[in-house]
Design a protein around this nucleic acid. Structure first.
Lengths: 244, 244
DNA sequence: AATAGGATTACTGTATACAACAAACAGCAG
DNA sequence: CTGCTGTTTGTTGTATACAGTAATCCTATT
């Protein structure tokens, strides 16, 4: 296999001209590739992410991969253990609670601002996003639907006009997708499909308080739909059983 | 000068045994060194942070410095421009508004939880922090006082029990220090010294709503104390003057 | 004398090589 | 047959070398 590797290495230099011209954008694309794969659960929690393997797949060296991995680690999508490398984060029940409490506080608090800044153009954009989400769900693409749902919440936060809080919501939504992947029931992905449309309705009429209350219930419903049993790891039980 | 550099390089290997044993902790220490220097305004907004220089100062190679710089960039304490390197972030007025709005939402929203979890031990710890802050202020160490004030707000958020939101507050406080450094008046650092003690009082008696209202006024007062004039940079005027 | 153009310099971006550590496996002893 | 230890392999951590780019300075020309 190392022979194949050696041969494939020759393909990298071909991209050099392109890489040097738009290196940052390539990094961004790779980052998003991995991020999407995690959020869409194609990379399952606990999956190991070896630097060599990623470097080979994306045709850049380990240096760049490490940079991306660190960014993902800071966003808590991957866990970086000192000499063991990177793996997709497996959120604990406590973390899940923290994330949803945080979403309650921030996303609900943002609704009045969003309602105030809501125009026809924004409403149309959100409706289109909700439509795509429904469509994905109907055609059985649950992974895609999860990501589109997260995108919807993020876009909503961005419409508040506060970039800092929008960024926080983005991170919370990414982690939520991970939480859904671990604790969610198959066939019931957090957001009910009509919920988002209802929400747009309240926002469109400028009814911030109503939207806030609705968002609160919406998030509570998602959280309630989770089954908070910590999946047993490979060899964890002994300590638990004997009261370690 | 490059000769001196070449000679000094020999000092690095001496540390290797130590570095390899506790490399992570050393990185953490360096990170905090730089972070503190920024928050305490010993590194002023706009200051360039050359990788070579930092690498030499801390006795590690550029690789490690880059890692730290990237982390600081993600926290928005330093700005990383593509081929120009790193510099201390100079917050804009818009960013300042976003940050303080975010603090209003999050820190105020956290107060009821904090009040609920407040015990004697926690109150004592906070009073000690407030005392140190007053002392630093009295002895003219404004830089230190700014950092201690930020530490106070962060510790408060941690007492809410929500690690995720506490982390957000930490980042917001760091950026606030930067904002104070740029837009604050000399001699009037954001937090009034007695404010924090009053706040502890409300929290100690479990009066979450009162604490919430007080925190809101507290933050508003800090924001109001800023003079929101964007400092002229070195050579920026031409475009502004001629309506670029 | 001032400006434009070119050359040099200084800095970052990237890859690769080397070293250290942890885990897995095999071999040996009980 | 089971448990322990030594070796080997695989993977990360760190440094350094090389390349490319932007900024600065110097020179020449108008």
């Amino acid at each position: 296999m190392s022979d194949t590797q050696a041969l494939e290495k020759r393909r990298a230099p071909v991209k050099d001209t392109k890489t040097s011209k738009e290196g940052d954008e390539r990094h961004e694309a790779i980052y998003r590739s991995i991020s999407d794969a995690i959020v869409e659960q194609r990379l399952k929690p606990g999956a190991r992410l070896r630097e060599d393997a990623l470097a080979e797949v994306f045709g850049i060296s380990r240096t760049g991969i490490r940079k991306i991995l660190q960014r993902l680690a800071l966003e808590q999508l991957v866990t970086l253990t000192p000499r063991r490398g990177a793996s997709v984060t497996r959120p604990t029940a406590d973390e899940a609670k923290d994330v949803f409490d945080a979403r309650q506080l921030i996303e609900c608090g943002l609704m009045p601002d969003v309602a105030r800044r809501m125009g026809e153009k924004e409403a149309a954009e959100l409706r289109e996003m909700a439509r795509q989400e429904r469509q994905a769900l109907r055609s059985g693409q649950q992974s895609v639907a999860i990501r589109l749902s997260a995108d919807f919440h993020v876009r909503l936060a961005q419409l508040s006009g506060n970039a800092t809080l929008a960024e926080f919501v983005e991170r919370l939504c990414s982690r939520s997708s991970l939480i859904l992947a671990v604790y969610g029931h198959r066939g019931h992905l957090g957001c009910e499909s009509h919920d988002h449309d209802d929400l747009i309705g309240y926002l469109e009429t400028g009814n911030g308080e109503r939207a806030k209350a609705f968002m609160s219930r919406h998030l509570k419903a998602i959280e309630a739909s989770l089954s908070m049993v910590e999946e047993e790891e490979n060899v964890p039980d002994l300590q638990q059983i004997f009261g370690g």
